[in-house]
Simulated assay, not measured.
Amino acid sequence: MNSKINLNVQNMQISGIRQFFNRIQHIEGMISLTIGQPDFETPLHIKSAAIRAIEENHTSYTHNAGYIELRQAISTYMNKKYKLDYTPDSEIIVTNGASQAIDTALRTILSPGDEVILPSPVYPGYTPIINQCGGSPVFIDTTTENFKLSASLIEKSITGKTKCIVLPYPSNPTGVSLTGEELEEIAGVASEHDLLIIADEIYSELTYGRDHFSIGTIAKDRTIVINGLSKSHSMTGWRIGVLMAPAWLASQCLKVHQYNVSCASSISQMAALEAFTAGIDDAIPMREAYKKRKELTSSYLRKLGFKTIEPDGAFYFLAGIPIEIASFDFAVELAEKAGVGVIPGTAFDPNGEGYVRISYACSEDQIHEAFKRIERYLSESD
Rank of each mutant, 00 (worst) to 15 (best):
Q19W: 04
F21P: 00
N22L: 12
I31L: 15
L33K: 03
L33C: 15
I35D: 01
G36F: 00
G36E: 04
F40L: 12
A50E: 08
E56F: 13
E56A: 14
H58M: 10
Y61H: 11
A65C: 13
I74R: 00
K80H: 06
T87L: 06
I92V: 09
T95W: 01
T95Y: 02
G97E: 05
A101K: 08
P119Q: 12
P119R: 08
P124G: 12
T127S: 14
T127C: 03
I129A: 02
E145D: 11
N146R: 05
L153K: 12
I154C: 03
G160C: 09
V166E: 00
P170H: 08
S171L: 02
E182H: 05
G188H: 04
A190C: 09
H212W: 09
S214T: 05
I224R: 05
V225L: 15
P246E: 06
Q252T: 11
L254C: 11
Y259H: 15
L273W: 04
L273M: 13
I280R: 01
R287G: 11
E288W: 10
K292H: 12
T297N: 08
S299W: 06
I309D: 06
Y316A: 01
I325S: 10
S327H: 03
S327P: 02
A331I: 09
G345W: 07
N351S: 13
E353L: 08
E353Y: 04
H368Q: 10
S379Y: 13
D382L: 12
